[in-house]
Design a protein around this nucleic acid. Sequence first.
DNA 1: GCTTCTTTTTATCATTTGGTAAAAAATCTT
DNA 2: AAGATTTTTTACCAAATGATAAAAAGAAGC
Lengths: 188, 188
Amino acid sequence: MENFIDYILQFGHLNKQQVALITSKAKEVSFQKDAYFSEAGKIPKQVGFVIEGVFRGCYYNNLGDEITRCFISENSLMSDYINFEANTASSEYIQACTDSKIIVFSKESWEELSQTIVGWDTMKNKMVQLCMYQKSRSNPVISQDATTRYLEFMDNHPTLINRIPLNYIASYLGITQQSLSRIRKNIS
Amino acid sequence: MENFIDYILQFGHLNKQQVALITSKAKEVSFQKDAYFSEAGKIPKQVGFVIEGVFRGCYYNNLGDEITRCFISENSLMSDYINFEANTASSEYIQACTDSKIIVFSKESWEELSQTIVGWDTMKNKMVQLCMYQKSRSNPVISQDATTRYLEFMDNHPTLINRIPLNYIASYLGITQQSLSRIRKNIS
DNA sequence: GCTTCTTTTTATCATTTGGTAAAAAATCTT
DNA sequence: AAGATTTTTTACCAAATGATAAAAAGAAGC
């Protein structure tokens, strides 16, 4: 929980009372590997913050291929935020890649914070926007070849490589698992 | 200007006075083809809204290749918003692909609106977040082959194909201009 | 209309990546 | 420990894309 408080204090100041209020609204939840935090076709009802573990955002294309769009690891906000706000169904899944612990806020709690803490909305929006921005910046670059994308992935996510299956990483990088295996061999 | 008012009214209600205030802060500006709205290394000082024309977000990689990250056409918000808000230098360019007309708000004007119009911040953040979200969704999908990416690009941007140079589109799709030319030939 | 400059296409060959199949290695169950 | 399952690696060949060079087409200036 302290990690989450540290995280939000990056975006503005809060007094002890306010911190206590936020803490009281948060709930710690465990997720087993492969469990879904959010599912395609359902309206996202929660905002999460990853305490321990790794999640991924993914979807299926018209050929049934599974495509990983992003990874979310420790000390990151996790939500299909646009659909969460708009009360609309998501088109993606958010799935635990490992056994995980997260903090969640229900939609009601999340909205109550806006009404009771002056300045929370500003902090919240900075948080959400920075999140979206960073995600867009860490994505693999389509004009680079697969080897370069893999090397940059390891730069951006040095701790992930040994924690999640390589087929997730391959689908994130836009290549087959076999190609990724070949690339790993050629590098080392 | 009406287009911009229609655009913002999607995100909330405003009375006539409020609309008039917003209008008074906006300035219409022309951009010639190739001119920069925003530049790498500089702090973005304006938020724009495209009335007529097409812009692109682009940057240079370590080989000096020019890479197009997005296109921004009529009736869209245009800004390196995170750096605009944070007063930090951008790492990208926003460049006019055609002669264009846009509306701009200076940073001062943009912030005055927050202080004078109740609810503007909420509308503004919805706008910005939806913008970021849509941009991330319309990006070429890295796991698709170049032909599919090109076909989806034409679906997503049917009006762009005849208005902007093909090398911009190629760099957006992550392929060489020669490859794009070959793909176009094979399709038709 | 002619020249110059820019954009787009074509062509050839090397390299990268995908598709398919199978083997090997690692992990999990019992 | 043995068997079953999952994950990762290998191998082979076909297809897609890149690199380089050059030609063709189109646009701009005089």
